[in-house]
Simulated assay, not measured.
Amino acid sequence: MKYYTAALAGLLLAGAVQALIEACNAVPAADKRLECLKAAMGATAVAPQAAAIDTLEQAFASMRAGLGVGLSYNDYQSSVVTLARALAVYQQQGSALPSTALEEALEAYKDAGIVWGRSIEFYAHSDNVRTYPNAPPVSRTGLEAIAFKYKLPLVNSNFLGWEKGVPVEFARSSLWGIALVKAKQGFLEIRDPHPTPKPPPVSPAQEADIAAANALAKEQQCQENPQVERTGLAGVDTLFAAACTHGKQLNIACASGICRVMA
């Protein structure tokens, strides 16, 4: 249902863009008409890109939903192939934004399938079930690389501890968790490729200076509830400014929580 909703949203966006282009053509002034058409053509590129991302996100959501209901190994492998195909289709589109995180999410799903499949093959031999009841040994299943790659914990494969192995259920759930985190990261990247950078955290010393600067501004009757803004640095001093109610600006210098009014 969500897939069809995303597709319908894409069609509605495309229809809205076409209507915008027609409206632009009706603008009498040539320069204004050109500006309008440029904006409309930009929207034309955005509409299919948003629809493609929605479709890909639905493919990842379907993968997660399948894990929740419990898939057989064969069904799981089919789901991974379907997801890989959906990511490849997205990447082939001209408007597609690259995402290493989405590729890593798919890789984690594939590696979980490898762990699962190697375990099935290993325990298909009844002797192995008796000899290695705790986990398939990495040395006999070729799982060393995956265990090292994801830092998976190893346990004693048998009671004597002769060999180390990967606990399969734990490994699968761990890799599925990694895939989920990577997928969320990937969709944030392609939906907002240029996010607004977050300001650096305020240190305790800076907090002390801000509080002292606000207190001094209030003491100087700049405002009843003054709000100071940092304006720069001067040696060891942090500089602040506050816009006062009488139309003037109060300039303050602070260091280690001690502030003074600047001339």
Rank of each mutant, 00 (worst) to 15 (best):
R191N: 06
V27P: 10
T5Y: 00
E104C: 13
A26C: 05
G10I: 02
R140N: 01
L239A: 12
Q249S: 05
A43M: 13
S256V: 09
V81E: 09
T245R: 06
I120M: 08
L106Y: 14
V129Y: 03
W162M: 10
E22C: 08
P137G: 06
M41W: 14
L250C: 06
L83D: 00
I53D: 01
E104Q: 13
T131P: 01
P199Y: 03
I210V: 11
G247P: 01
F159K: 07
G70A: 09
Q49K: 15
I210L: 08
L87K: 03
H194Y: 10
A30W: 02
A96Q: 08
E169S: 11
L37P: 05
F240M: 14
V168P: 04
E144V: 08
G247R: 03
G68K: 04
K184W: 12
R85G: 02
S139K: 12
A29W: 10
P136C: 07
A101W: 08
N158E: 07
L34W: 13
R260F: 12
A183H: 11
V261T: 07
A65D: 05
A43H: 04
Q58N: 11
G177F: 02
A212Q: 06
K149Y: 11
Q49G: 09
R33M: 00
A147K: 02
Q93A: 11
L20M: 14
R172M: 12
V81Q: 12
E35K: 13
A108L: 04
N25H: 13
I210F: 09
V228H: 01
L13H: 05
I190D: 00
A45C: 15
P226M: 00
A61K: 11
V155P: 03
V115D: 02
G257W: 01
A23G: 15
L143I: 01
Y76P: 10
W176I: 05
F148Q: 15
E103I: 05
Y4F: 07
V46N: 09
L250S: 04
R85A: 03
G66F: 04
L143N: 00
L152Q: 08
V80F: 05
Q92A: 12
F240Q: 11
L188D: 13
Y132I: 03
V89Q: 06
